[in-house]
Design a protein around this nucleic acid. Structure first.
Lengths: 108, 108
DNA sequence: TGACTATTTCGCACATTAGCGAAATACTTA
DNA sequence: TAAGTATTTCGCTAATGTGCGAAATAGTCA
């Protein structure tokens, strides 16, 4: 589907971080890290109302973090910036990789 | 210096993203990416008042993104999570690395 | 000790955001 | 076309976050 987007510079770091600044939206990214989901999956995952989740999704989409695609009656979302999910995974596992945290999460 | 921190799990992704969810704080991280700074440097960089910058710094510190160290009269801050600055740099340069964005910012 | 500098904490006014339910929209199938 | 499902938009209230100046703290030096 993809509605007309704001013409702001896609992927800009400030916008991405702002979009990720809410735990529900990080949860959404975690879900999408495993593969695309329809909105119904994400509503269940975050445990908030449909309208609320829908707005969280639009925030992430406007920031260029995720993409939506309408197929039939459903809308499927997927990650547009795979490095985001990798970054999250790294932050979630600091104790498992103490030296990687110091050296930059293993990202060369 | 390092005051008593909240005992929450350091580096947790939600907290990190929340801390980075304000442009002034991203600016701070950008500055610190080049090396440690005293508060005075950061106040100039973000263009806000001392008290405001000080609070932004405490948010970042509480999230485990930066570290403070008092030396003499001044307090110096530096990055605690180098991968954050790398991630920002990657997000800032999407057009320069279109395929890396798709493949994960070159982070293996 | 007293003055001085660097930084943080406090309290407040203002702005932004979150979450909700109802209504609107879009697509599909009968 | 009518009805049904999936999702988004709207309007509102409550909660949270921001920025500021004043006051508090801490370290240095005369």
């Amino acid at each position: 589907m993809s509605k007309p987007r704001k013409p702001k510079p896609a992927y800009q770091a400030d916008a991405v971080f702002k979009a990720l600044g809410h735990p529900a939206r990080v949860t959404i990214i975690r879900e999408l890290s495993a593969g695309e989901c329809c909105v119904c999956d994400l509503v269940e995952a975050v445990g908030l109302g449909w309208s609320t989740v829908s707005r969280h999704l639009s925030v992430l989409r406007d920031a260029g973090v995720i993409l939506d695609e309408k197929r039939g009656v459903q809308v499927f979302y997927r990650l547009q910036l795979p490095c985001v999910s990798r970054f999250i995974a790294c932050l979630d596992q600091p104790s498992a990789f103490p030296d990687l945290m110091t050296e930059g999460c293993g990202c060369k």
